[in-house]
Simulated scan of single mutants.
Amino acid sequence: MKHYLALLVSISIAPATYARGVEVCPTLPVNAGLEWTYHEGPDFDVCYAAKPGSEANAFGVYLGNHPSFKPKDAVRIGKGRVANKKVIWYQQDPEDSSSAFGQQTLIVLDKKYGYVAHVWVAADTNQELQDRLSVLERITFKP
């Protein structure tokens, strides 16, 4: 009976572990035409947005306390909005992106705990970039 109960508990926990990715990633606008792929790190989460069935990522979001991106070391390229928050966009390092229009930003989500979102977007045309930035303006970070 104990083994049966342990098996039942482990089976019921497995879907909750998988669901964590969906719960951690920001909410995409209904008409975005994108879906998240989730990857869990040792102390961070990464969400990649892509068109269904595509392997090409439109943008990504790192959620954690120790992003590799440091704005002070990057080239500033303009202002914008992500999740209705004002941001400064920086040029993406060519080593990190092969897209013609790559940019990134850092958003402090919880100042007390140093929890941040490193957001990057990749696009091959200016129109593609504008479309993806429009989606990013309307995403919603979860508490």
Results as ranks from 00 to 15, higher is better:
L109W: 09
S54C: 05
A32C: 04
A16C: 10
V22R: 14
E35P: 01
L28Q: 13
G80E: 06
A32M: 03
T140S: 14
W120C: 07
T17W: 15
Y115D: 11
L136P: 06
A58E: 07
V108I: 12
W120R: 10
E95K: 15
P143W: 02
V24S: 02
G78T: 12
R132V: 00
R132W: 00
V82N: 12
E95F: 01
L129G: 05
H39G: 15
D93L: 08
S12K: 07
L136E: 10
P67V: 12
G102V: 09
L129E: 11
I107L: 11
Q92A: 14
A6T: 15
A74I: 00
A19N: 02
V30D: 14
R132H: 04
K79P: 04
R132D: 06
G80Y: 03
D131N: 11
Q104W: 00
G102H: 08
V82Y: 02
H3M: 10
Q104I: 09
C47Q: 05
E40P: 03
G53L: 05
A58N: 08
T125M: 01
K142P: 01
N65V: 09
V30M: 11
C25E: 01
I107Y: 08
Y113G: 15
Q127I: 02
A122G: 10
Q103A: 07
L106R: 15
L34D: 04
G53V: 06
Y115I: 12
F101Q: 13
V24E: 02
G41P: 03
K142Q: 13
L106H: 13
V24M: 00
V75T: 13
V87H: 05
L106K: 15
F101E: 13
D73W: 01
Y90D: 00
A50F: 02
Q91T: 12
A123S: 11
I107E: 07
K2C: 01
V135D: 04
E55M: 03
L129S: 05
R76M: 07
A6K: 15
S98F: 02
D124G: 13
G33R: 04
M1D: 14
A32T: 08
E128S: 14
D124N: 14
D45Y: 14
I107W: 06
A117H: 07
P29V: 05
C47M: 02
P67N: 14
I139M: 09
L133Y: 06
H66C: 10
T125C: 01
D45M: 13
A14L: 11
N57G: 00
P94R: 12
A122S: 15
G78P: 03
H3F: 07
N65P: 00
K85G: 01
R20A: 12
D45K: 13
L34Q: 06
L129T: 06
A32F: 02
C25T: 03
A58M: 04
C47I: 04
A6D: 11
N84C: 01
R20K: 12
N57F: 01
I88V: 13
I139R: 11
V9A: 15
E23A: 14
A83N: 11
Y38S: 14
A117P: 01
Y90Q: 06
A49L: 02
H39T: 15
G102F: 03
V82C: 10
E128L: 09
H3C: 06
E137T: 13
G78V: 10
A6C: 13
W120P: 02
G80C: 03
I13W: 08
T27S: 12
R81I: 03
N65F: 09
K142R: 13
G102P: 04
